[in-house]
Design a protein around this nucleic acid. Structure first.
Lengths: 121, 121
DNA sequence: TAATAGATTTAGATTTATTCTAACTTTTAC
DNA sequence: GTAAAAGTTAGAATAAATCTAAATCTATTA
């Protein structure tokens, strides 16, 4: 647990939204100007592998990272692109039944219009 | 419908698997050596937008394309990476119920070990 | 405390997938 | 048959992520 890793973990912990590696890098640089992009990626990858943080693949743009490692899925606003978490505890079993073979997991993003964007229409 | 677009569509129609833009380019070049990568991407994007073909986002590697435009989801082998189609007609309604708000769609990839890879273990 | 091995970080180059640009070619419309 | 529009081409550009090699930090042993 180096200073760099600690800083990156702090940033994710205190963010109220999902952050890209680029955003983490920008925020980290404010507090530690010498930090390198490769360090951010190294640590995000290492912490993801260790199960300390969660990587979210976003179609057509950069991956995002979040502190929340409880199993959950994502809603993505088709207007502003923002991600929200949603818990679908029934889904994995239901998929296992439907597919008929053992599944190790799945990746789901549901497309919707978030409450803020819905207001603006 | 240019010659190039027709060729690309033929390639997708006659392929038994999901193809990346790169693979389409390679196969197209065999029959039309002058074809450019940009043309492949232009046409894949245009045909995707027109609903003639389907783009599949694959975590950590290049997008794939397929002729099948019936709504369906994907299984991805965690060992060899190959994609298979699966139909889950109940899922969209079930997600709509669970999320509680209108959803325009979703993206799902289920991780499993395909029959061929399973044999080799 | 000094030497050293191992891990980590840094800066920058590299890779990969994709898009952009500008010149050229083909097609279409008059 | 010519002009405008659309499409293609080659290569440059971009963005996300990884790799490399040198530098630095950390912990351990002497």
């Amino acid at each position: 647990m180096t200073k760099q890793r600690e800083l990156i973990l702090q940033i994710l912990t205190h963010s109220d939204r999902h952050l890209t590696a680029d955003e983490v890098f920008f925020l980290a640089k404010l507090q530690m100007p010498s930090i390198a992009m490769a360090t951010v990626y190294n640590n995000l990858n290492a912490m993801t592998d260790a199960g300390m943080i969660n990587r979210v693949h976003v179609d057509g743009s950069a991956d995002c990272f979040e502190k929340d490692t409880d199993p959950h899925d994502h809603l993505r606003c088709t207007t502003c692109g923002k991600l929200a978490n949603v818990s679908l505890p029934w889904l994995k079993d239901r998929l296992h039944q439907a597919v008929g073979t053992d599944i190790s997991g799945y990746d789901l993003t549901v497309h919707y219009i978030c409450p803020e964007c819905r207001k603006k229409i």
